[in-house]
């Protein structure tokens, strides 16, 4: 108990032990919920945009409770940029692949030439692929916006 009290007093202003512990316990559940919102977008309200924002909010919460350096341990700036570009590329790549395989641009039923499946079911699967791309892009861009704006571009401490 005394150890904890000393630890709490040695922290700089704005960093609270209670908030940090609560955030550390909440973050896995927030991320799980974000993934659920993305993959369950076919059957309930949700989808790529909303799930991506929830996933990004988990990192923003971490950056608010701790500081920016803590979030760089989980997702570095480089990984963040690569993942965000990958998200945009998944969408455009899926769309271009459909055109290459002989269908129209963004006509997912053309993907049935790769994996034989009912073309109508492929349209459902294509929407899922696209949503994953959107989710990745939105999550990483949200995190990157927060990093840049909160630290003025220096990426040191943050708010």
């Amino acid at each position: 108990m005394k150890h904890l009290q000393e630890k709490a007093q040695s922290k700089p202003l704005g960093e609270s032990l209670i908030v940090q512990t609560a955030v550390r316990m909440m973050i896995p559940f927030i991320q799980l919920f974000g993934l659920y919102v993305i993959v369950h977008g076919h059957y309930s309200p949700g989808g790529g945009f909303q799930g991506g924002v929830v996933l990004g909010a988990s990192f923003i919460l971490m950056a608010l409770a701790y500081d920016l350096q803590k979030t760089f341990g989980y997702i570095s700036e480089r990984t963040n940029a690569i993942l965000g570009s990958t998200g945009a590329l998944i969408y455009t790549g899926t769309a271009a692949l459909c055109a290459v395989l002989g269908g129209y641009f963004l006509d997912y039923s053309a993907l049935a030439k790769i994996i034989p499946m009912n073309p109508i079911d492929w349209r459902s699967m294509g929407i899922f692929l696209v949503e994953v791309g959107v989710g990745l892009a939105v999550m990483n861009i949200m995190v990157s916006l927060f990093w840049d704006i909160s630290s003025g571009g220096k990426m040191d401490e943050g708010l």
Binding site: G41, H42, Y43, P45, G47, I120, R123, S124, I127, E131
Partner: peptide
């Protein structure tokens, strides 16, 4: 046409 129950998606 798409077999997706959520029309918005």
């Amino acid at each position: 046409q798409t077999h997706v129950p959520n029309i918005v998606t």
